[in-house]
């Protein structure tokens, strides 16, 4: 009786888990299926130079986002891991959790007001606007990863050892914290890059959809999805492919680590 009950529980758990997995697999499998059966639909994409521009603008803006993130994430994580200051907990939420849950529309609207036509700093509908819209939703991933690792190192007190051996703050950061957090930094930046590639709402509102200037893959796909669905599907396939590559890379980097 008891054993029977246990088996039943196991079966129910498995059914739930696999239904969930199936639901998340569905879009990717559908995408693959559609491309396999309608591979010829990709043809117009390859010859559409507006698509290639959107692709290049997506890549370059995501790259700029990663460079900016890489530049700021280590100092910021250091300050949050080691310094005490007022409203620290709130500011940490502001930098990590809030941007990840903020409605992208809100981001776009705020920036349009802050840097739009009526503002002295006019950035709306430019390449810079694409980068700014992407940065706010992407960088939090990297900061989250790096900060967690820095706190782990601090708890192990290895940084204290380095200090007692004569290391100043600069040396502690570049000879201990950064090398020890190397894999977390790479994984965080990879995720930030993937997120930047997929960002949509903020760019749509703040940067607009100007061909050859601010149009990125997501806004490109959005523009044509109802008029030319297969072209949109092709663009989507490329985005999905890139995000899978990025996430797999991040996972491999993280599981490889010994530290």
């Amino acid at each position: 009786m008891e054993r029977h009950k246990k088996q039943y529980t196991e079966q129910v758990l498995t059914v739930f888990a696999f239904s969930w997995i199936a639901w998340f697999l569905f879009p990717i499998l559908f995408l693959i299926g559609a491309l396999v059966f309608k591979f010829s639909a990709l043809q117009p994409i390859i010859s559409d130079d507006r698509f290639w521009w959107a692709f290049i603008i997506s890549l370059i803006s995501a790259f700029v986002v990663v460079v900016l993130t890489a530049l700021f994430v280590v100092p910021t994580a250091y300050v949050f891991a080691y310094k005490e200051f007022r409203f620290k907990k709130f500011l940490e939420t502001l930098l990590i959790e809030i941007p990840q849950t903020l409605p992208p529309v809100a981001v776009g609207v705020i920036y349009v007001f802050a840097f739009g036509v009526h503002s002295p700093i006019h950035l709306a509908f430019t390449f810079a606007a694409v980068v700014i819209a992407k940065l706010i939703v992407s960088a939090p991933f990297a900061l989250g990863y790096v900060l967690r690792k820095f706190r782990e190192i601090r708890a192990s007190k290895i940084d204290l050892v380095a200090r007692s051996l004569g290391a100043n703050t600069y040396t502690v950061i570049f000879r201990v914290l950064v090398p020890m957090a190397r894999q977390d930094i790479i994984a965080g930046l990879t995720l930030a890059w993937a997120r930047a590639m997929g960002e949509f709402g903020g760019s749509l509102i703040f940067a607009g959809v100007i061909a050859y200037k601010t149009e990125i893959l997501p806004t490109y796909a959005n523009r044509i999805v109802h008029t030319d669905p297969f072209l949109a599907l092709g663009a989507t396939a490329i985005m999905v492919l890139f995000s899978i590559i990025a996430l797999t890379t991040a996972r491999i980097v993280l599981t490889k680590k010994k530290i």
Partner: peptide
């Protein structure tokens, strides 16, 4: 010029 040694000796793993 102090030698601080934490639990588990705190060797640099990298």
């Amino acid at each position: 010029r102090l030698a601080y040694v934490p639990q588990d000796y705190g060797l640099f793993p990298h």
